[in-house]
Amino acid sequence: MIRSLFSVRHRELPEPVEPGTVLTSAHELHVKLGARHVLRGVDIEARASEVVALVGPNGAGKSTLLAALATDLAPDSGTVRICGRDAGTWSAGELALRRAVLPQSAQLSFPFLVEEVVRMGRAPWSGTPLADNDDEVIAAALRATEATEFTGRPFSALSGGERARVALARVLAQQAPLLLLDEPTAALDLRHQELVLRVCRERAAAGDAVVVVLHDLGLAAAYADRVAVLHEGTIAADGPPAEVFDGELLSRVYRQPVEVLPHPRTGTLLVFPERG
């Protein structure tokens, strides 16, 4: 079934792209969920070799925007483009070669082993010359996420944080040039939060575009090239963290006093709520 879904017949394989090439964009995006207008005229783009963080309070529209960029959610109006084309013009197989999606939670109905879960990420490449590299790519993805030791275990037997790392390994194994990650650090401990964001930076350095939903503003400040701050379905600010992370703006968006200070040793932005 997987082979038929990603049939090589009439499939256009992705071409290499130059750094700075726009790999996904949304223009005048409007999304309604029921009676609620979740996104209101959003414009955004992500380019090869950059990490773009989507931040904002709960309900601001971050996950909805990511789902629309992934084509998992159809907008009520506006356009989404992936790799230079209207997203709706790609076949399912062609789209899977160009964008990989990590949802907030990974649930499987069958007792797949971890290695089988990660191997699912290679399905789009079935029947192409790159399928010969499947084992090597899977092993590298497991190493990158520190999940090699789980290879022979059932996915259902893992903790929430372990599942999150295996799900990320599946996304990495897909080798798509556009990675769309929804709260990939939510279930992780401190060490593995840093690991995931380092992986994002490594993928960007290798030429991919990474769009990642984050709640931790400190991680976004440390690892993102650009940050889009969502507020009530619109983008309140979009740019480098040093320009976007302003205490007054963040305090207004989060309805909580926020301080933004340079680290005394490294100069990296520190973002945290005012206390006391």
Score class of each variant (00 low, 15 high):
208 D>Y: 07
138 I>Q: 05
197 L>C: 15
123 A>D: 12
93 G>A: 15
164 A>Y: 01
99 R>S: 00
181 L>S: 06
91 S>N: 06
136 E>I: 05
151 T>L: 13
12 E>P: 04
194 E>V: 15
212 V>C: 04
156 S>M: 14
227 V>D: 03
24 T>W: 11
130 L>V: 11
186 A>S: 15
13 L>W: 13
199 V>E: 02
87 A>G: 14
53 A>K: 10
266 T>K: 01
154 P>I: 05
258 V>P: 00
75 P>H: 08
51 V>L: 02
9 R>S: 14
91 S>A: 11
80 V>E: 01
260 V>L: 09
161 G>N: 03
261 L>Y: 11
36 R>E: 15
30 H>C: 10
188 L>I: 00
6 F>M: 10
185 T>F: 00
76 D>W: 08
213 V>G: 04
126 S>R: 09
63 S>N: 05
236 A>W: 07
106 A>E: 12
109 S>E: 10
190 L>K: 09
109 S>W: 12
192 H>Y: 11
193 Q>W: 08
267 G>S: 15
154 P>D: 11
250 L>M: 02
229 V>D: 04
33 L>W: 10
239 G>I: 07
207 G>Q: 00
155 F>A: 10
106 A>G: 06
104 Q>V: 04
178 L>F: 13
84 G>S: 08
236 A>Q: 10
194 E>N: 11
162 E>C: 10
202 E>D: 15
48 A>F: 06
43 D>Y: 08
62 K>H: 00
159 S>D: 06
17 V>C: 09
136 E>Y: 08
55 V>Y: 00
271 V>H: 08
4 S>L: 15
136 E>T: 14
98 R>C: 05
208 D>H: 14
150 F>H: 11
123 A>N: 12
19 P>A: 14
268 T>I: 12
252 R>F: 12
75 P>S: 14
230 L>T: 02
173 A>D: 09
187 A>Y: 12
18 E>N: 09
170 R>L: 11
138 I>E: 03
222 A>G: 13
46 A>Q: 02
50 E>M: 01
128 T>N: 05
29 L>G: 05
257 P>T: 15
251 S>L: 12
141 A>R: 02
248 E>I: 13
20 G>N: 01
259 E>T: 14
133 N>Y: 14
124 P>N: 04
168 L>D: 02
121 G>T: 09
84 G>F: 09
193 Q>D: 07
212 V>N: 03
13 L>C: 10
269 L>D: 03
208 D>K: 08
5 L>C: 02
80 V>Q: 04
197 L>E: 05
188 L>G: 09
55 V>F: 00
7 S>M: 07
30 H>L: 11
79 T>N: 10
267 G>M: 08
255 R>D: 15
166 V>A: 07
58 N>I: 01
162 E>T: 05
72 D>L: 13
238 D>C: 05
101 V>P: 03
240 P>F: 09
2 I>C: 13
17 V>P: 00
141 A>I: 06
183 E>D: 01
254 Y>M: 03
170 R>E: 02
189 D>V: 11
180 L>P: 02
57 P>H: 12
17 V>Y: 09
229 V>Y: 12
266 T>N: 03
169 A>L: 00
179 L>C: 05
155 F>V: 11
88 G>Y: 07
91 S>H: 03
110 F>R: 06
185 T>I: 01
66 L>D: 00
190 L>H: 14
178 L>W: 04
7 S>P: 07
61 G>E: 12
66 L>P: 02
95 L>S: 15
189 D>Q: 10
100 A>M: 02
228 A>D: 00
17 V>D: 12
166 V>M: 04
268 T>D: 15
